[in-house]
Amino acid sequence: MNPFAVVGTLLGVAGVVEAVLRPDGQLAVALLVAVFATVPLVFARTHPGAVAAVLTPMAVLSVVLHGALTAGLVGAVVVWALLGRRRWSRVRRAAAARTAAAREVEDALVELTARGERARIARELHDVVAHHISMISVQAETARLTTAGLPEEGARRLREIGDTARTALTEMRRLLGVLRADAEPDTATRRTPQPGLQQLLELLDEMRHAGGASTRLIVRGPVTALDPGVELTAYRLVQEALTNCRRHAPGAAVDVTLDYGDDAVRIAVRDSGPGPAGDTGGHGLVGMRERVDMVGGTLRTGAAPVTGFLVEAVLPV
């Protein structure tokens, strides 16, 4: 049931009764004003603007004629209140739409960043995987040519292994061409071996020279040889964390910790700055998470105990 129809009817009845009972003798005018000041409220839900335009002058006229608060004035107040809810509802809907649009843009930007980072990771890992496949081809060919008295079947199998490895390299180059959406990387970059943990000292030296901050490398546990992909992930993780330190906490002291365990290496980069300010879900952290997920590790970022910011990853060995 339409509540405005009920209210309009009740106020209309009240207005008519009031007009009949008034002693001023202006029954026709009072009835006309009472009807037009209340009954239009029935249509308030579908036509609030038009109803307000009719009720308001009628309500004022009823006050002027009778010198008292009438049912028509109550109806006008109800309609104007209805218009102010509707207006607030429109404001809320517009704000919600803007918030949703901003969230969609941010989500799309994060997804594009993640895709770009995945493509970059794939390009870097291409060198690592290509090296191993090349070694398979070289070792198979060497074994075929240097093994004395090798049966023909064994030589054929080794030749097939070498051919398969070379085919795999060709397909990897094609895959890399698909991932390289914008342009070929610089030739010098392609010739440079992918970095690993052996280059951490150079990275920390660059940090000291660039920011003048105190940067320490702390190594715990027996150093274990890691897979090249894991070493590359660890290096890039520390590199991105140091870049964030330099950007968000310039001049702060930074500790880089490598803690070698039996089945994992824990990497922690902590600065002594003021800690995170506002949103800490930046695009650099998106890249870190992509790299750590790729090797089956875990990543935690956020405020460090007492002060500063902490990036902590556990990579399986």
Rank of each mutant, 00 (worst) to 15 (best):
residue 120 R to A: 14
residue 122 A to H: 08
residue 124 E to I: 03
residue 124 E to N: 12
residue 125 L to T: 13
residue 126 H to F: 15
residue 131 H to W: 08
residue 132 H to N: 12
residue 132 H to P: 05
residue 133 I to R: 02
residue 134 S to K: 04
residue 137 S to W: 00
residue 138 V to W: 08
residue 138 V to Y: 12
residue 139 Q to G: 09
residue 139 Q to L: 15
residue 139 Q to I: 12
residue 141 E to M: 11
residue 142 T to L: 14
residue 143 A to W: 05
residue 146 T to I: 07
residue 149 G to H: 11
residue 150 L to S: 06
residue 151 P to N: 03
residue 152 E to R: 03
residue 155 A to L: 05
residue 156 R to G: 07
residue 156 R to H: 12
residue 159 R to T: 15
residue 160 E to L: 15
residue 163 D to P: 03
residue 163 D to I: 12
residue 164 T to Q: 10
residue 164 T to A: 14
residue 166 R to N: 14
residue 168 A to F: 08
residue 168 A to Y: 02
residue 168 A to W: 05
residue 168 A to P: 04
residue 169 L to N: 01
residue 170 T to W: 10
residue 173 R to S: 12
residue 173 R to V: 13
residue 173 R to N: 07
residue 175 L to Q: 04
residue 175 L to P: 02
residue 176 L to K: 03
residue 177 G to L: 05
residue 177 G to P: 01
residue 178 V to R: 03
residue 179 L to M: 07
residue 179 L to Y: 06
residue 180 R to P: 01
residue 182 D to K: 00
residue 183 A to E: 10
residue 187 T to N: 08
residue 189 T to H: 06
residue 190 R to H: 02
residue 191 R to Y: 04
residue 191 R to K: 04
residue 191 R to F: 06
residue 192 T to H: 04
residue 192 T to D: 07
residue 193 P to V: 06
residue 196 G to Q: 00
residue 197 L to D: 02
residue 199 Q to N: 02
residue 203 L to T: 01
